[in-house]
Each structure stands twice: as C-alpha cells, then as structure tokens.
C-alpha cells in the first residue's frame, strides 16, 4: 500500500501540472483579450467579459464591447479549440500508428479535410455538410496513407511517413486542381482561406457549427485513452492482450480525424502543432495517454492562442498562422529531437 501511495502522488503531480497549464491558459486569454491595435486594458476586457457573458454590470464603451465580443472572443475561442484539437489528434495518431514521427499533416489528414471542405464549397454546401465533407476527405486520406504500407507489406515507421508524403503530395495537387476549377468570384477566396490557416475572419457561428464534432470525439478519445497506450504497443501485442484492436483502432482514428477535420473547418490547415506539442507534452508528463491527452490539449490551446495573438499584434497585414507555427515549431522540434536523440533511433 505504501507504493500505491507514491503512485497516486505522481498522479497528483500530473493533475497539478494540468491545473498549472489551465492557469497559464487563463492568463493567456486575458492577455490576448487586451492585446491588439485597439487599446483595451485588462480591467476593461474583464468587465466586458463579465458584463456580456455573466451579466455582472460594468461600464464600457460600445467599440470596446464590439472589439472584445465581435473580434477577439471568436478568435481566442477558435484558436484555443483548434490548438486543443490538433494537439490531441496528434497524440492519438502517434499512438495509433505507434510512431512519434507522424502528425495530422504528415498523414495527409489536414489536406484531405481541406479537399473535402473545398468540394463542399464547390457544391454550394455549408454548415454541417462542410464538416461532414471535411471529415470524409480526412478519413479517405488517412485510409490511403495506412493502406500503402499494408499493400507493400511493410510495417516500418519510415514507410508510413513516406506514404504520408505521397498522399499529402497527391492531395495538394488535387487541391490545386479544385482551386483551378473554382469560380474565382465566389468560391476561390473561400477555398484559399482553408489552405492558408488563419483566424482573421472566424465567427462565433462557425465555431458553434463544429463545436459538437470537436467535443464529442474529444471526450470519446479521452475515455479510451488508456487503450491507446495498448494500441501503441503494436498490433499483435495488443491482440495478445485481448484487445479488440479493430474496434478501438477504428474508433480512435475516426475521433482523431473528426477533430482534425473540425479544426480545418474553422481555421484551415495549420501545421506543426500536431507534431511538436505531443512531443513536448510527452517530455513533461511521460507517454501515458491518460495524462498525455489532456496535457497536450492544454499545451496546444495555449500555443496556438499565443501564436495567433502574436500574428494579429505584430504584423500590419495579418499573416497566416502557419507561418509562425512553422517558424517556432521547426526549431523547437529540432531542439526536442536533440534532447531525445537517445530514445529515437
């Protein structure tokens, strides 16, 4: 029983770490609320927040309210949600494919979802169809990526990564073709927006339209997080442990893909988060998915919120978020690889 105590103590630290991240996230939200070209003090931003959301009164100007509620809140919400989704699905994919080198972008899921969304736009569909098509595109892409190593009868990690490169390349060509046939007046801008990765024009209505397809798979993934550990041991090991591997694997892939697709629906493709954040989180709390999934989610949310806040504050003409995630993510990933060089051979 003494050892049990140390075990739960460790657990306590993990929860404490998540609470710390939560506090950092809250701090970042307040910071994000008051950074931008329109000057708003922290006090004002909180007053607006409490006034508009909880009806707690407070006096503020109309433009302050419009900026906070109309511009910053949707952006902050969207960037946190997308960060959480991308990081969590990155963790899930890495466990499912027992490969720390992959991410939603490498598997072609993001591009596939992008194509799905583009096709929906071409067909003049919107709302739930948009996320539906994005999901189908993502599932199709990930299926092809997984199928190639199976056809070639190779289970190596490198093969899966290469297969992702192949599918990703094909997907971006298809996307180029769709852009080519799109009506430039009405559709092209919308499609280009998906590929760019930006929160500039995100609206609360868009967020509401995908919130369920984000939260439900997130909860499912969270519920089965311990089983992802077993999945990451490899197929035959998992099977010998009595795991219904097909069911768990398919449910996990569906959830992770749905999460990626939903985030593509509101922000377009944003690279690096699904790769770097899971690594960083793993360094902090270890590889257990039960701890990893919430921690990586929180880290992803904080990271994307910070990146988006930086993009909208520093640049005159807003640049796509992907530029900064790449600029920060790539060297950061290099440092992580350097520190983990012993474990990744």
């Amino acid at each position: 029983m003494r050892r049990l105590a140390t075990n739960s103590k460790k657990n306590f630290y993990a929860v404490g770490f998540d609470l710390l991240l939560l506090a950092i996230l809250a701090g970042c939200i307040v910071m994000a609320l008051c950074s931008g070209k329109y000057p708003i003090t922290p006090k004002e931003s909180l007053e607006v927040l409490f006034g508009e959301v909880f009806g707690k009164g407070g006096v503020y100007s109309e433009m302050t309210k419009n900026v906070v509620m109309g511009l910053r809140i949707p952006r902050i919400t969207a960037s946190i949600l997308c960060g959480v989704m991308l990081a969590m699905s990155g963790v899930a994919y890495q466990s499912i494919f027992k490969n720390p080198l992959i991410s939603p972008d490498f598997l072609g899921v993001s591009n596939g979802a992008c194509i799905g969304a583009a096709i929906a736009i071409l067909m003049g569909l919107g709302g739930i169809y948009l996320s539906g098509f994005a999901f189908l595109g993502g599932i199709l892409a990930v299926s092809i990526t997984v199928l190639i190593p199976t056809i070639l009868k190779s289970e190596s990690n490198i093969m899966l990564v290469l297969s992702g490169v192949i599918v990703g390349g094909a997907m971006s060509s298809i996307l180029g073709f769709i852009k080519y046939v799109a009506d430039p007046e009405t559709e092209l801008a919308a499609i280009t927006y998906w590929t760019m990765g930006s929160f500039s024009y995100v609206t609360m209505a868009e967020i509401k339209s995908v919130i369920l397809t984000m939260v439900i798979p997130m909860l499912i993934l969270f519920g089965m997080s311990w089983w992802l550990d077993i999945l990451s041991m490899g197929e035959s090991e998992a099977k010998s442990l009595g795991v219904n591997i097909k069911l768990i694997r398919n449910v996990a892939i569906a959830c992770a893909t749905l999460m990626t697709a939903s985030s593509v629906c509101i922000s377009g493709t944003i690279g690096w988060i699904g790769l770097v954040i899971p690594h960083f989180a793993r360094m902090c709390v270890g590889p257990n998915n039960t701890k990893l999934i919430p921690t990586a989610g929180l880290m992803g949310g904080i990271f994307l919120l910070l990146v988006d806040t930086i993009t909208r504050t520093i640049s005159m003409a807003e640049m796509p978020v992907s530029i900064l995630t790449g600029l920060i993510g790539a060297p950061f990933y290099a440092v992580l690889l350097y520190r983990q060089r012993k474990t990744i051979s």
């Binding site: 466990s95 027992k98 720390p100 990690n157 990451s232 010998s240 590889p287």
Partner: peptide, 11 residues
Amino acid sequence: PQNHVPAFSYT
C-alpha cells in the same frame, strides 16, 4: 512475446 522495444517509453 520475444523482446521488443515499444515506440514510447512507458514506465
């Protein structure tokens, strides 16, 4: 099974 090293370093 025969010894193998998993992708992730579980305790």
